[in-house]
Design a protein around this nucleic acid. Structure first.
Lengths: 219, 219
DNA sequence: CTTAAAACGTGACATTCCTCACATTTTATT
DNA sequence: AATAAAATGTGAGGAATGTCACGTTTTAAG
């Protein structure tokens, strides 16, 4: 049963786990499949078992990739609990397995088990702090710094390796750092020219992480 | 007792309210006084009884005003529960009365009362959704749109009036919309020239709200 | 009331980076 | 393999806006 692996679920007892297992459906998604959609009624809390997902919001001018999340984690907690309607979409960037928990079941568990609630509260708080930092970073740095920031995030947080396949194409990278496809292209070639990264299509290898970190930090 | 007025506190019973009242201190702050400070150990959840507060984070290049919050509300919930150290500061922008709740008391209440936990969860979720929208707005709009957005926010959400005294000076407005003092100045004069607003020092009167809303929406 | 300090307004200039246009490469489809 | 479609790279030009410099106004302090 999927959610068993969740931190928060450790605090559930056998009876509660049974409730959960009876109201929880596992679904597989292929790359680019939509897991939930902005403006649609939200009725499930989703726990990612495996894979990776991008959260996308339709902004006033263009779409914006809010963040990329890797299993294991919850997705859509704020949008499911915070409003009746989804405020953003979730799309698989790899093959992904997700566990859909009915919202009333989830609420029931929160009510039954304060420890579970507590874990969820901590998770929400951390996520909001994270969001503050991400936002300030995007706002105050120039495109170069924002791109470097994300490349290092990919290497350190998503793939645990300095060589990886980009989870996004150039257009989506632009949507992630709020720039344009052309600028991303230009910066990639510049980073490659300076031997900071090596690029081959979607394949990225970070050659000089100190320099890249300097670009990230200087903005 | 201050926190009685909180939505979440409605779910507390008499015994729980007693615990709360015995571990809760009211403090008054004058304009510009610091309520809590970034990078300092966080040990209290704060409930604003009256007044108004700005949340400020030190960004990579400059300071950033995350948001302005008006009583009654909690402040610092994410930063107190999400980490040991404050990730941002809170400063009064008016005379403000705040209720400091010891964090262990707060956690105790969360554990005792699932309804209270639930209310906090909902509040955190809404706040994160809000933060997503604010962030995307700041990222995708030009300075004009961001400024217009905030002027309308001041009028509609903070003061419930189209005439008000700005809670921030020009420099702080720049920190709020991530721009420069000079740009804010120039935009104010331009908005005044077009008879969209009337300015007299800190006093602002919105003369043509439709036009202002158009500027906000067009970016 | 006087004076210093802070806040504010405005012009000139430089920089970042977006947009448009088009060529090239890669991927998908038949 | 041939063709279409999508993704990518690159140059030129322009718009938005930050920075610097300086003058003026407002506020605070003595």
């Amino acid at each position: 049963m999927c959610i068993l692996k969740s931190e928060a679920a450790k605090s559930l007892n056998t009876g509660e786990l049974k409730i959960l297992s009876q109201n929880c459906v596992e679904v597989d998604f292929k790359k680019d499949e939509v897991i939930f959609k902005q403006n649609v009624l939200s009725s499930n809390v989703i726990y990612l078992q495996s894979g990776m997902v991008k959260l996308i919001i339709a902004g006033p001018q263009r779409k914006q990739i809010l963040k990329i999340k890797k299993a294991p984690c919850y997705i859509g907690l704020p949008t499911t609990m915070g409003d009746k309607i989804n405020h953003y979409s979730a799309v698989a960037v790899q093959n992904t397995r997700a566990c859909f928990i009915d919202i009333s079941t989830f609420k029931e568990l929160l009510r039954l088990n304060p420890d579970f609630s507590y874990e969820i509260i901590i998770e929400l708080c951390k996520s909001e702090l994270d969001q503050f930092h991400r936002c300030v970073n995007l706002l105050q740095k120039q495109v170069f710094g924002r791109l470097a920031n994300n490349l290092i995030f990919f290497a350190d947080e998503l793939y645990n390796s300095d060589e990886f396949d980009l989870p996004l194409n150039r257009n989506e990278l632009a949507d992630l750092v709020c720039s344009s496809r052309e600028s991303i292209s230009r910066m990639f070639t510049e980073l490659a020219d300076e031997k900071i990264i090596k690029i081959d299509g979607k394949r990225i290898k970070i050659l000089n992480k100190e320099k890249l970190a300097k670009i990230r930090d200087k903005g």
